[in-house]
Amino acid sequence: MTKISLILRALGVAALLTSATPSIAQTSEAPIRIVVPYSPGGTTDMLARFIASSLQAKTKRPVIVDNRSGAGGEIGTAAVVQARPDGNTLLFHSGAIAVYPSIQKKLPFDVTKDLTPITTAVGGPFAVIVNKDFPAKTLHDLIAMAKASPGSLNFGSAGVGTSTHLAGELLVQEAGIKMTHIPYRGGSDASLALLGGQVQFAILTVGESVKLVKSGKLRALAVTTLKRSDILPNVPTVAESGLPGFDASVLFTLFVSSKTPAPIAKRLNEDLVAVLRDPSMARKLKDLGLSPIGDTLDQAHERFDSEIRRWGTVIKKAGIHLE
């Protein structure tokens, strides 16, 4: 082999090495599609559109939000599992996806094997909400009432197996009380039931309850994260209210097919983390009571596995089944 051939060969190897993890802007000219397994207009859809807009600005590629609602998120999730694993199709899902292995036994996919978490994008607290006329003024009061009359109080949520339902069940289990769960068709319906006095309390996201709380129509007894909410700073945490260590968050995560090549997944993570950690994203999320997370691939995987185990334990203990 001549000296020139050796040089050319070395240059070729170097070029391959430097292009091993290309920016997703260089990978393809095809649009990036973020699948949301819920209808337009909800929190998950809104967050996906925030991320899509910022990702498009960073990558200089079209980023489309594709709403594939139905079957509790199953249809949208299946679409991503079945998509070409080239990094151009992502799933943006709420914390409800961590419940699939425990509560939905007959699925055409396995989220632990068919999907790879790219990054935990956004998180924030739930709130324990009561009607303004309800006699309990603190979470401690609510727990005392429940212990004095087991099973007499009802709590509402956005539906069976939803994040708000499970956060409520976790609270019931940690407090050692007995309550009756009343599921509704989403957080808005649960809020209306609370306003009408059909339930004594509800677990809602801070974003969907803050306006009613600030207007005085509802009261927030506690938030479920270890840290207080920036938009409800005077509301104590559950941990501060008598259940030390209590911590439950609403989480939103981005996934790709598990068959996606590792270099593409890595670059997706890098670009998405950069977008999520930009100060403009935190400003957009603040009014929703949420904060950007943007963790690494390993951290996202570990967090997802932890959520599956945690909620699986809650589901088993509560005896929750989908009808």
Rank of each mutant, 00 (worst) to 15 (best):
S5A: 14
L6S: 07
L11P: 01
L11Q: 04
V13I: 15
V13K: 03
L17I: 01
L17V: 02
S23R: 09
S23L: 07
A30I: 06
V35N: 08
Y38C: 00
G41R: 03
D45R: 12
I51R: 08
A52L: 02
S54H: 12
K60T: 09
I64V: 13
V65E: 10
G72N: 11
G73S: 07
G76H: 13
V81M: 03
Q82M: 00
P85A: 01
T89M: 03
L90F: 11
L90V: 02
F92W: 12
V99N: 09
Y100L: 10
K106C: 00
K106L: 15
L107V: 06
F109S: 01
K113N: 00
D114G: 07
T119C: 00
V122C: 04
V128E: 07
I129C: 07
N131L: 13
D133Y: 05
A136C: 03
L139C: 01
I143R: 01
A148I: 12
G151I: 05
N154E: 11
G156S: 14
S157W: 11
L170P: 07
G176Y: 11
H181A: 05
I182W: 13
P183A: 03
P183Q: 04
G186R: 12
G186H: 09
G186I: 05
D189F: 06
Q198S: 13
I203E: 14
G207T: 14
S209L: 00
S209F: 08
K214Y: 04
R219N: 12
L221I: 00
A222Q: 06
T224Y: 06
S229R: 02
D230H: 14
N234I: 10
V235G: 09
V238G: 00
G242C: 09
D247M: 08
A248T: 11
V250S: 15
V250H: 10
F252Y: 15
S258G: 03
A262W: 11
I264R: 03
A265V: 12
L268P: 04
L268W: 08
L272G: 10
V273M: 06
A274W: 00
V275G: 01
P279V: 03
S280L: 09
K284S: 04
L288R: 05
P292E: 01
Q299G: 12
A300R: 06
R303L: 10
R303G: 09
S306T: 13
E307Q: 11
I308V: 15
R309E: 14
T313M: 08
V314I: 11
I315F: 04
K316F: 02
I320E: 06
L322C: 05
